[in-house]
């Protein structure tokens, strides 16, 4: 009886295996992108549209901009959707990527306690906000994990001329944006956050937007095709199709509409079509 049961189990599992092999398609497209595009759900909207239109299956690998470009440099991805302009330029110059095109932006915002002890809300721009926080020695909480957000924050401190190293009012969490926001709210500190995370979590956090809309807070996404001349295994054809697709008029409109129904405002602003 035991034997028969095991046999039945084995047969069921065998059928499972067969069902797997049937879904493995040739010439899939590998898209390396940032976690934020996946976390907001934007890709869940865009990818099925692309797959329907072209017949390619897309494998989205949601990592960080840095890691996405590292994958590109090894030819392990076909197309990148990233937001780290300096590194992107370097990537193109090295010849690993071609056809860098702007897709969209969203923005960072500076959050703080509604009481605003640093009176930073009155500041004209983001750099001045940072100066005020430093001057009043109000608690500032940093991601501290070399993420895009962290890199942006460091560049703002640099622009403000503040050296945060070793300062008592400056703390690092080393964890993700969502968890960092919870810490900030608990400790009544200031922080730099991306707008989409803020929108998804603002209901449960007692924080206020201190500064937004400053041009320096923009977070710009580019699409880059990995150079198929460098890597014969890279699916250059599909990569070009995807890049063309994401900057097309129709899709740019979809990007602009995304999130409006859920948050009352868009999460991304399309930039490819003026």
């Amino acid at each position: 009886m035991k034997k028969r049961k095991m046999l039945v189990t084995a047969m069921i599992l065998a059928t499972f295996l067969v069902s797997f092999s049937s879904c493995a398609k040739k010439s899939d497209l590998i898209l390396a992108t940032t976690t934020s595009t996946q976390d907001t759900g934007l890709l869940d909207v865009l990818i099925p549209l692309f797959e329907e239109n072209t017949g390619y299956a897309v494998k989205t690998i949601a990592v960080g901009s840095g890691q996405a470009m590292a994958l590109g440099k090894r030819g392990e991805a076909d197309v990148l959707l990233v937001h780290s302009p300096e590194a992107e330029k370097e990537f193109i110059e090295s010849g690993m990527g071609i056809n860098r095109r702007i897709v969209m932006h969203n923005d960072f915002i500076i959050l703080g306690p509604p009481e605003d002890p640093a009176e930073a809300a009155k500041a004209k721009n983001a750099v001045e906000v940072f100066r005020k926080i430093a001057a009043s020695e109000s608690l500032f909480i940093s991601r501290g994990d070399f993420s895009g957000t962290h890199v942006k924050e460091l560049s703002l401190w640099k622009a403000a001329g503040v050296d945060v190293k070793g300062k008592k009012w400056y703390q690092e969490t080393g964890i993700g944006m969502g968890k960092t926001l919870s810490v900030v709210a608990e400790k009544k500190g200031y922080t730099l956050a991306d707008r989409s995370t803020w929108l998804t979590m603002k209901k449960i956090l007692n924080l206020a937007v201190i500064n937004e809309g400053d041009r320096t807070l923009y977070n710009i996404y580019h699409v880059i095709e990995v150079n198929p001349a460098k890597f014969p295994k890279v699916n250059g054809k599909a990569a070009r199709l995807f890049a063309d697709f994401i900057v097309s008029v129709g899709i740019q409109k979809v990007i602009g509409e995304f999130g409006k129904d859920k948050y009352g405002q868009p999460l991304y602003f399309p930039d490819a079509v003026k």
Binding site: T35, Q38, D39, T200
Partner: peptide, 19 residues
């Protein structure tokens, strides 16, 4: 990958980071 390699644990992690 949605509909392809998304399993319960990875989906849980993703939904957590999505808030």
């Amino acid at each position: 990958i949605r509909g392809h390699t998304r399993v319960l644990t990875t989906a849980t992690v993703m939904e957590t980071s999505r808030g």
